[in-house]
């Protein structure tokens, strides 16, 4: 290919690329956010209603308007244990600004009798929810413990952190994001 043929090819490729960019533009401006519930950043957080350790119930969608951290955990999981003090500390700092922690215990994979002593040991004051029938774990496609979902005031998942323990600075940066 000589120099002229090459330059014509470049020009054609650029023109086609430009045309494709305009043809494939998403003119409706539709994004995934808020449309389909799925456990992924940009999607509506799958709703759930669970019993708390104290016997009450909490429904995620009732917390719309507040920034929510859904933390999936179990008492036997070392990184879950390691990150709980940081979660409690951040909860204390930001709860007045509308930050809520829902610590969903994977009760179907855990020993119920161990939960209350765990909560007492770490002095946890946020709601401890019990997933006794494996409703939340599968809905959030749980593959590793702990898993954390940072949900904004509109109910959209903004960040997913799989594994742990989460550092205090990570919690703080993510919570400040969802509180905006």
């Amino acid at each position: 290919m000589n120099s002229t043929q090459r330059r014509i090819t470049y020009a054609l490729v650029l023109l086609l690329g430009l045309a494709w960019t305009f043809v494939s533009a998403d003119k409706t401006g539709i994004s995934t956010a808020g449309q389909i519930p799925a456990p992924q950043a940009g999607f509506l957080a799958p709703d759930f209603e669970l019993k708390t350790l104290e016997g009450g119930t909490v429904k995620l969608s009732d917390l719309r308007g507040q920034a929510v951290l859904v933390n999936l955990w179990a008492t036997w999981c070392p990184p879950c244990r390691a990150e709980m003090p940081a979660i409690q500390k951040i909860y204390n700092e930001y709860k007045e600004q509308g930050f809520v922690v829902l610590a969903v215990n994977m009760t179907y994979q855990d020993t119920f009798a161990n939960i209350a002593p765990f909560v007492e040991e770490y002095g946890l004051t946020f709601p401890i929810l019990l997933d006794e029938t494996a409703s939340v774990g599968p809905a959030y496609q749980l593959r590793s413990l702990p898993s954390s979902f940072f949900i904004d005031r509109d109910g959209i998942i903004r960040e997913v952190v799989i594994g742990g323990p989460m550092a205090e600075a990570l919690l703080r940066t993510r919570v400040e994001e969802i509180l905006k």
Binding site: S24, A25, D26, T28, G29, S31, T32
Partner: peptide, 26 residues
């Protein structure tokens, strides 16, 4: 990337729906 971005469901949209990644790729 310019071609395949059109099939993505997580594109960052600008200026009335243009996909940012396609503009950068171009």
């Amino acid at each position: 990337r310019l071609f395949l971005e059109a099939f993505r469901g997580d594109s960052i949209l600008i200026l009335g729906g243009l996909r940012l990644a396609q503009i950068v790729a171009w």
